[in-house]
Amino acid sequence: MKGLPPVLITAIVLVAGFVLCALQFPNIASTRVVGNLLTDNAFLGIVATGMTFVIISGGIDLSVGSVIGFTTVFVALAIERWGMPPLVAFVAILALSAAFGAAMGAIIHVFDLPPFIVTLAGMFLARGASFLLSTESVPITAPVYSTVSDFAFRMPGGGRLTAIAIIMLTIVIGGVLLLRLTRFGANVYALGGGRATASLMGVAVGKMTVKIYMLSSLLAGIAGIVFSFYTSAGYSLSAVGVELDSIAAVVIGGTLLTGGQGSVIGTFLGVLIQGMIQTYINFDGTLSSWWTKIATGVLLFAFIALQQGLVALARRPVAKRAGAVS
């Protein structure tokens, strides 16, 4: 249940990768680069945290990328065209995305449909709706945006821990606590272990499903707001494919794609690994940025193979523990 071995392996991969990168480009080992890495991947870290809950519960959420896209467009239009105060716009979009997720969860539960299909529909719906709002990139000029963008803690060595990085770290920590320490978290694992069984044991499976997808969409909404801070614009084509990046981060982080096992920390490390590869390619300068995807693909494959191996190993000790009835 702890899922420690896979997480440890992810951590080792991250550290080893970082050391290798730093050997080749000594400048990588600086707070400046690390700070940028956190900032650049803030939205991914947030959305992948939500995805971790969904995947551990045995589901999947393909709609998150589109929800991010919709959020950026909605926020941009609300502030720039409709004259909403930014804070009101944020509250409105978060309520909207939470309701969107809750609706998907309800449909999955009530009609007993595969989450893959329902969230695929959600993905098209949200992306289509954002194009409906605007097909063009809408720049955001509200003063709060420049304030937030400029805000940062100076780290020793000249690095900047930006506001959006702090938001991401807060959410990751919150996610860890929620999953590890609360009844909600235990129920997420329970759902991943078996929906029918969890239901027989008294877990309100329907409510849990709604809440889990609501959480995922809500975090996608927050990721969208963060993304709009990051780009200072709303664009309906933003964050295309982010759902797949976040699934990759979750799996690289040691969460079982079939549910029941995993951790938010692992996912966070998975996000950092993807960010690190990106950073390496930027430093190299001669490589196409698409190498990030290839490296991610190779890692993903390696981790899935590894998980299968671990699962096979985990089945063995049954015999050893048998007969402990005194």
Partner: peptide, 30 residues
């Protein structure tokens, strides 16, 4: 009810299985 086929969750700890959905709590934390 205890059913014929074990209806518990193999991926959770024994303790979590025993106290699922009714864990001892303090300040919302198990």
């Amino acid at each position: 009810t205890v059913y014929q086929e074990v209806n518990l969750l193999p991926n959770l700890s024994v303790a979590q299985n025993l106290f699922l959905d009714r864990q001892p709590m303090r300040f919302g934390i198990v």
